[in-house]
Amino acid sequence: MMNNYLYDGTADGLLSAIAWILEEEPDPEKVTIRERMDTLFEEGFTIGTDATQAESLFFRLKQYAPDAAHTLYSFMLAEKEGMETSLLHYVSLAFKHGDKVKGYLTHPAVRDIVNVSKKAGRELHRMKGLLRFEKLQDGAYLAKMEPDFNIIHPLAYHFSCRLRAQHWFLYDVKRRTAARWNNGSLQFGTIEQFTTPALSEDEKKVQALWQAFFKTIAIPDRKNPRLQKSNMPMKYWKYLVEKQGE
C-alpha cells in the first residue's frame, strides 16, 4: 500500500511536508505527495505547514549536499505544480547519495527535477544579461521584465553585487513584484498600481547610442537571424532597447 500525503500548496508547506515524511516514513520513495484541493473525497493525510521545518530542511541539505540544495532552490523558482512527488524522491535520494545524485539521471525523479531546475537556472543566467535599466528623472534606474520563472530574488541579489553605487528597481510585470536597492540595502515587495515614471533627459540619447552600436557591431556579410533568435528568444525582446520597433 502506498501512502498519500497532502500539503497546503505553498512552498513552505511542501518543504515542511517533505521534512516530515523523511523523518517518519521508512521508505520515502514509496510515498506520494500532492496539493490539497479540499474536495470531499480527497484521500490522504494532510501535513501541516511549519516554516522553521522547511527552512531547516533546506539548510541541512545545503550542508550535506550544496549542489543538490542549489538544484532544489532553482526548482522552487519554477513554481511547477504536479511534481511534488518527484521532488520528495529527489530530496530523499540527495540525503542518501549527496551531490552525486545529480548524476543519477537514469532515475525519472532526478531527471525531472534536474531538468526543471536547469531551465530556471538558464533563464536566470540569461536575464542577468538581458535585463535593461532605464534612468529615471530622479536619477534612479528601473528595469522591467516578464520572465517565465520567479527569479526576481536571485536576480536582484546579482545586481546588488554589481550596481552597488546606484539606486535601482527591478519590476516583474506579470507577478507584480519588485525589488529595490538603495544605499546598500535590498528590499522586496509587491506593487498594486504601477505607473511608469518619467525618464531622465539623457536617457533617450544613451539608448540611441546603444542602438547604433548594436547595429554596427554585426558583420554585414554574416547575417544570421536564426542564430540570433535561438540565443535571444523573441519573448525577451519587448524590453530590449536594441530590439524596439522590430
Binding site: H125, K128, G129, A165, K223, N224, R226, Q228, N231, M232
Partner: peptide, 20 residues
Amino acid sequence: SCGTGNTSSSGICHSWADDG
C-alpha cells in the same frame, strides 16, 4: 563598495548581434 561593477567568472552575454 562605492563604485560600479564586478565581473562574473562564467561570463555573461548581454545581447546577440544580427550576425548571431
